[in-house]
Design a binder for these strands. Structure first.
Length: 572
RNA sequence: UGGGGAAUAGUUCAACGGUAGAACUGCGGACUCUGACUCCGUCAAUCUAGGUUCGAAUCCUAGUUCCCCAGCCA
């Protein structure tokens, strides 16, 4: 670094976020030889974009600072967890572009050690078996402003506690009959310290340990110790765990754990027009409001993948929203922008007419067709070009024609001349309607001298439109997805179903595609020119092409129209 | 009325006692065989009140507002 660099202090470089600051200073000061992080999902649902933030942070920090990141399943509640979720989580983390190498762990790997630590606590007089009912415990816990009361079972002897705990483990008691609690302080202002539950009886098969265990550790009792076992240096979680940190530290201080990890908290991600709550997402799936965890409207990793969002767009988005401790709601528009920005660079261009209207060129010879050159990517010559078929009968987009052109509409209307991309200039000469007065067909003429799209006399047109050949184009279904929630700030409350956007899915069954699209592949993005980014959907079959819209292109004309309409409404 | 956090453009983040900056959004324009992309310009913020200091978004004091916690969920 030169003195100039130093003087300027690289003032325009954004600083590290507060977590990376901590990691860096811990490393610099030698408090940790190597940074070790972990991503600790509970396998009770699919991963969503909020998890992506945690994944990118934890794996990203490990990468940047030369450490490692573990994938650890927090599988301490068999009543809610399933193997399907364990599998989907691994698939999604990999797809996002991260690799845990050999560091795949489960909290259930540590059940024996955790049990031993619980016994240690009992022997030290710091834990006891409580026979109170759940309701009694709730009442005795006090409230936010009143202290709790000690359990009548709090002063049991060590021997009795050991015996009872062993019998809980042996399965002698029914679900919920007793729990093991830490003996901390029923009067603490921090409710997590009012004798928290360490173990509860759960009579449900565990996806990994089967029916071996009848009792399972709580999150609080399992998490920090699992971190300590794995040598995690920086245990990053979300803000709501902030007041669990004293408990986290209490276990680390009172147990003979192999290392002393620290917990740090950051704000979770929220995005407008969506809900990132596993409860709501699960209900959306179970209630069949969507087609599954990977429905393209879902904010799940699997949903984005199916929608055609590339993993690099998700990573870039997470990088750009940053990490802080203030609750925030990111505008969905920012994510859309980054998706477009990413796709614009890589998606090959194709022509597809979503809502076709037929065009017949009266002066084009019947029965004739020809091939025209079209580039695959305007900014990437290496992407090459392709041939597209042109003929007498074509389809254009319905919205590209207006019999009576609106203000600033400069696409096709009677008498105006426009360019068909890569083809010819055409002019509309006649509008054919059905009995209901709907336009069913346009008769046009083309100018043979404009082949390829340029007029030798240098005359200009104001619009260039996409099109497909009626004879050669492929029929397809195209699915247009819009936000699942109409309101920018859905509540996620019980009645969330009423907040669903009734127009979140629009199926266009009569689309026509240029033939090259026959070779489209799932997860390979393609731009339908002037429309948006699309990808082949998994519902497609050899007989029926189905495309999913990832996102539309920016449409300043549509925006102006909407603005004008709003203005006119306001004026009235 | 208990405990724990957070407040910087409309939004999300920087600035770590020394010129408040970026991205998105909005607005205006240029370019264009995609009304896309790209480019240029522009509007726009330190929660409030005191204090310390040559100098405060940053330190101190007092307030205000918002978020989280009373699962045998995580």
């Amino acid at each position: 670094m030169t003195s100039d660099d130093k003087a300027s202090g690289n003032a325009n470089e954004p600083g590290l976020d507060f977590i990376r600051d901590i990691v860096k200073s811990d490393l610099d000061a030698g408090r940790a030889a190597q940074v070790v992080t972990r991503f600790p999902p509970e396998p009770n649902g699919y991963l969503h974009i909020g998890h992506a933030k945690s994944i990118c942070l934890n794996f990203g920090i490990a990468e940047e600072f030369g450490g490692r990141c573990h994938l650890r399943f927090d599988d301490t509640n068999p009543a809610k967890e399933e193997q399907e979720y364990i599998d989907s989580i691994q698939r999604d983390v990999r797809w996002l572009g991260f690799d845990w190498g050999k560091n795949l762990f489960y909290a259930s790997d540590y059940f024996d050690r955790l049990y031993g630590w619980a016994e240690d606590l009992i022997k030290a007089g710091k834990a006891y078996v409580d026979d109170q009912s759940q309701e009694q415990m709730r009442l005795a816990r006090g409230t936010l402003t009143e202290p709790g009361k000690n359990s009548p079972f709090r002063e049991r002897s060590v021997d009795e506690n050991l015996d009872l705990f062993g019998r809980m483990k042996a399965g002698e008691f029914p679900n919920g009959a007793r729990v093991l609690r830490a003996k901390i302080d029923m009067t603490s202002g921090n409710i997590n310290l009012r004798d928290p539950v360490l173990y509860r009886i759960v009579d449900a098969p565990h996806p990994r340990t089967g029916t071996t265990w009848k009792i399972y550790p709580s999150y609080d009792f399992a998490h920090g110790q699992s971190d300590a076992i794995e040598g995690i240096t920086h245990s990053i979680c979300t803000l709501e765990f902030e007041d669990h940190r004293p408990l986290y530290d209490w276990f680390i201080a009172n147990l003979s754990v192999p290392s002393k990890p620290h917990q740090y908290e950051m704000a979770r991600l929220n995005i407008t027009h969506t809900v990132l709550s596993k409860r709501v997402l699960t209900e959306l799936v179970r209630g069949k409001h969507v087609a599954g965890w990977d429905d393209p409207r879902m904010p799940t990793i699997a949903g984005f993948r199916r929608r055609g969002v590339p993993p690099e767009a998700i990573r870039d988005f997470i990088k750009r929203i940053g990490v802080a401790k203030a609750n925030s709601v990111v505008d969905a528009g920012m994510f859309e922008f980054i998706i477009r920005e990413t796709l614009n660079k890589i998606a090959l261009r194709r022509m597809a007419v979503l809502r076709p209207i037929k065009v017949v060129l009266d002066n084009y010879p019947e029965g004739q067709s020809e091939e025209l050159d079209a580039v695959n990517h305007p900014d990437d010559e290496a992407a090459g070009s392709r041939k597209i078929k042109f003929g007498r009968e074509l389809y254009i987009e319905q919205e590209d024609f207006m019999e009576v052109p609106a203000k600033k509409f400069f696409r096709l209307s009677p008498g105006t001349e426009v360019r068909l991309r890569y083809a010819y200039f055409i002019k509309c000469t006649q509008v054919i309607k059905n009995a209901a007065g709907e336009v069913t067909e346009l008769r046009c003429t083309y100018d043979p001298a404009t082949k390829g799209g340029n007029a030798p006399d240098g005359r200009k047109v104001k619009a260039t439109m996409h099109w497909v050949s009626a004879e050669h184009s492929l029929p397809a279904e195209v699915r247009i997805y819009n936000p699942l929630f109409a309101a920018p700030d859905p509540s996620g409350a019980e009645n969330f179903a009423s907040e669903l956007n009734p127009e979140s899915l629009e199926v266009l069954s009569g689309a026509r595609l240029e033939p090259a699209l026959r070779d489209a592949k799932i997860e390979t993005p393609v731009q339908f020119e002037r429309q948006g980014y699309f990808t082949l959907d998994k519902d497609a079959t050899p007989e029926k092409l189905v495309f999913t819209r990832t996102t539309g292109l920016r449409d300043t004309f549509a925006k102006d129209v909407a603005k004008e309409a709003a203005g006119a409404k306001a004026a009235r």
